[in-house]
């Protein structure tokens, strides 16, 4: 039974292409899409009326 906690069996990151970079980038992109949905597409009348002019000017389907 190998000792998985030892230094020699620790997973090497050499073959994982910058996972520590990709994960926060993906999270940021996902948050960006959620905010974009809220501003541009949310059906709530409050969101629609507050962002109405921005939806028209940024050419989102509005009505």
């Amino acid at each position: 039974m190998p000792d998985l906690t030892s230094e020699t069996h620790r997973p090497s990151y050499t073959h994982e292409p910058a996972r520590t970079v990709l994960r926060p980038l993906l999270a940021a992109a996902a948050l960006g899409l959620v905010v974009l949905y809220g501003v541009g597409f949310a059906e709530s009348p409050l969101a629609h009326n507050a962002a109405h002019d921005v939806r028209h000017i940024t050419v989102k389907p509005c009505h």
Binding site: A28, L33, V35, V39, R55
Partner: peptide, 14 residues
Amino acid sequence: ANILHAFSMALLVF
């Protein structure tokens, strides 16, 4: 709304 829109686009750009 413009700030939120720019925030969403900035996140995608970054």
